[in-house]
Computed example of a mutant assay.
Amino acid sequence: MTRLFLPLIAAALVAGCATAPQATSTAPVAAYRDTIELAGRISVNYQHNGNPESLSGKFDWVQAGQRVDVTLSSPLGQTMAKISVTPDAATLTQTDKQPRTAKDIDSLTRETLGWQLPVAGLRDWMQGYATAQDGSRYTASPANPTVTTRDGWRLRYVSWQDGTENSAHPQPKRIDAERSATPTSDELAIRIVIDPPA
């Protein structure tokens, strides 16, 4: 995917339009759900063999209990990779290639795509939750939009779904996630923009 995907993708993902300032809600997001279906856009900036790389495209996310299925597509909608994650294993399938399986999705995506897709974190992040550095449960709100997670990701909830910022349970729209380089992984920045609910 690292070489097949890159020529087909745009260089950057454009954020939504600015809106007039409004009162900022302090209300937390809705209760966590084990079963969700989300779609949107993803933009990734990462290092590959010491060189900066970037990609953008679309994603579909289907979560049912402990299973997560993710489809990554080019900006034009061509399926580039399918990822299935269960508590026992992770499988990644690319176009015209044999499926690859590993114990965890982090190592599988890093080896196959050249960057790590943090599926375990995204299960929480896309619903406005995370595990903070001190191990406590973080709940996002427009008034409390940033956190550093226990595994070193810096999250920022940049915007909220139209009409929900001042509602009782605002829903995330754009999430920026960044992680500094470590001895076992390179610097990585991921931007997620979630489509409005159907």
Rank of each mutant, 00 (worst) to 15 (best):
Met1Gln: 09
Thr2Trp: 02
Phe5Ser: 12
Leu6His: 10
Leu6Trp: 02
Leu6Ala: 14
Leu6Arg: 10
Leu8Pro: 07
Cys17Val: 11
Val29Glu: 05
Ala31Pro: 01
Tyr32Met: 00
Asp34His: 13
Tyr46Ile: 06
Gln47Glu: 10
Gln47Pro: 01
His48Tyr: 13
Asn49Lys: 11
Pro52Arg: 02
Pro52Asn: 04
Glu53Pro: 00
Ser56Trp: 01
Ser56Asp: 13
Phe59Pro: 09
Asp60Gln: 12
Gln63Arg: 15
Ala64Pro: 00
Gly65Trp: 04
Arg67Cys: 04
Arg67Met: 11
Arg67Glu: 15
Val70Met: 12
Ser74Thr: 15
Gly77Trp: 07
Met80Thr: 04
Ala81Pro: 12
Ala81Val: 03
Lys82Pro: 03
Lys97Cys: 07
Gln98Met: 08
Arg100Ser: 12
Ser107Phe: 02
Ser107Leu: 10
Leu108Asn: 11
Leu108Met: 08
Arg110Trp: 02
Glu111Arg: 11
Pro118Val: 02
Pro118Phe: 05
Val119Phe: 09
Val119Lys: 10
Ala120Asp: 14
Gly121Ser: 11
Gly121Glu: 08
Asp124Met: 07
Trp125Gly: 11
Met126Ala: 07
Gln127His: 01
Gln127Thr: 01
Gly128Ser: 08
Ala130Thr: 04
Ala132Ser: 14
Ser136Lys: 14
Arg137Val: 06
Thr139Cys: 01
Ala140Asn: 09
Pro142Cys: 10
Thr149Arg: 09
Thr149Pro: 09
Arg150Leu: 10
Asp151Asn: 15
Asp151Leu: 02
Ser159Lys: 04
Gln161Arg: 07
Asp162Lys: 12
Asp162Leu: 08
Gly163Thr: 06
Thr164Gln: 01
Thr164Ala: 05
Glu165Trp: 00
Glu165Gly: 02
Ala177Lys: 03
Ala177His: 07
Ser180Pro: 03
Pro183Cys: 09
Leu188His: 05
Ile190Gln: 12
Arg191Phe: 00
Ile192His: 02
Asp195Phe: 03
